[in-house]
Write a protein that binds this DNA or RNA. Structure first.
Lengths: 200, 200
DNA sequence: CGTTTTCGCATACCATCGGTATGTCAAGGT
DNA sequence: ACCTTGACATACCGATGGTATGCGAAAACG
């Protein structure tokens, strides 16, 4: 049966979703600092009172919620691409390729990769990224190391190097300074770098 | 002979340097957004009038100058480390290692790697980084590719992948979540990744 | 079914912020 | 001696993020 939600609860969720949707759009389009609360609440059709009711931390809390949502979506895409493969090695490479494709979408990359660390601080941003998408990378590399596919080594440095490489590559590929063929070249170079980890 | 500067010009430079020094310190310690102009000019012993006289673009211009300075210092360290070697391949690896060491210093990394893209926008930040430090990387890789040391391939994707990897690694190494031995592990992993580019 | 409580928000207000317009006074040219 | 220029300081402004309070309807209660 349906959750039997009352009028009050439904309206509450509607407001929260409107706030989330509009703020995500505005933050993605123009960046966190360039969007004022007044414009935000006007676009969502509510007032600042509603904003602070749902997000007590104000603008920062709202941004955090938007970031979580965007990260969750990317993580889902990456996980889906990886689980479509059987071989653990192919899971890694497919996941990395999917991440590049997902993070290249200009819709959320500004929130995820540019404003995220600056607004929340690098430590909190890193913790969120770790919980969302980098966790998969850690698990995949750990499994490959234990299976002997890649040479035994601490995985944490690898995760950061690879994560940083893919983040920057995504930003570049989505920028005007990158051309159409660069995505293929980048994935090829990334593949070669990944292959350097193999034991054979 | 000395540049024969008058009282006016010397005072001007003094003010400009004080502004630059204090803003660099405050931006590095607490981040761009958390530092107000009032506190800034008070720390430098001047007023807002002086700030806007030297930096017409206001807070953003000041930050840009700080970022340029920090990037120039890092680039100098990297170039010095590279030029101390003869072999082009060793120049590359030594330069990368020196970059990791330089960018790990918590003094400027916040300005260079976290606030930089958010404040100036990723495009401008990337252009500045390219002009300062990533340029060396591009030149080194191009030379190695032409010499046949690394397999022929477009260098732009490589530059972005490696630059991003090192930036993120530097942030991680300077964070509380990294341990003392992680720098060695990271440089080792980076070395292995670089070696994967070689033709032999 | 009337009363009371709670809750989801709107309104009004505030301190502070980045930015600007104007004033000032000494250094440097003539 | 005079006048121009430049390096600031002072005073001020609109807008911003954040808070305190008010309010009306929905739910809980007897």
């Amino acid at each position: 049966m349906v959750p039997e939600q009352g009028v009050r609860e439904r309206q509450r969720e509607r407001t929260r979703l409107a706030l989330l949707r509009e703020s995500r759009r505005l933050f993605s389009e123009r960046g966190y600092a360039a969007v004022g609360l007044a414009e935000l609440v006007r676009a969502a059709g509510v007032t600042k009172g509603a904003l602070y009711h749902h997000f007590p931390g104000g603008k920062t809390d709202l941004f955090r919620a938007v970031l979580e949502e965007a990260q969750r979506e990317v993580a889902l895409r990456v996980a889906a691409a990886a689980e479509a493969r059987e071989d653990p090695w192919e899971q890694l490479t497919a996941g990395c390729r999917e991440f590049l494709a997902a993070a290249t979408a200009p819709e959320a990359e500004r929130v995820m990769l540019v404003d995220g660390p600056a607004v929340l601080g690098w430590n909190e941003w890193r913790a969120m990224d770790e919980a969302a998408s980098a966790r998969h990378l850690t698990e995949a590399l750990t499994a490959l190391a234990e299976a002997g596919v890649i040479t035994p080594q601490p995985v944490a440095p690898l995760v950061h190097l690879l994560s940083g490489a893919m983040n920057e590559a995504a930003l570049w590929l989505a920028s005007p300074s990158a051309g159409p063929g660069d995505l293929a070249h980048t994935t090829a170079a990334l593949d070669r770098m990944l292959r350097s980890l193999r034991a054979d």
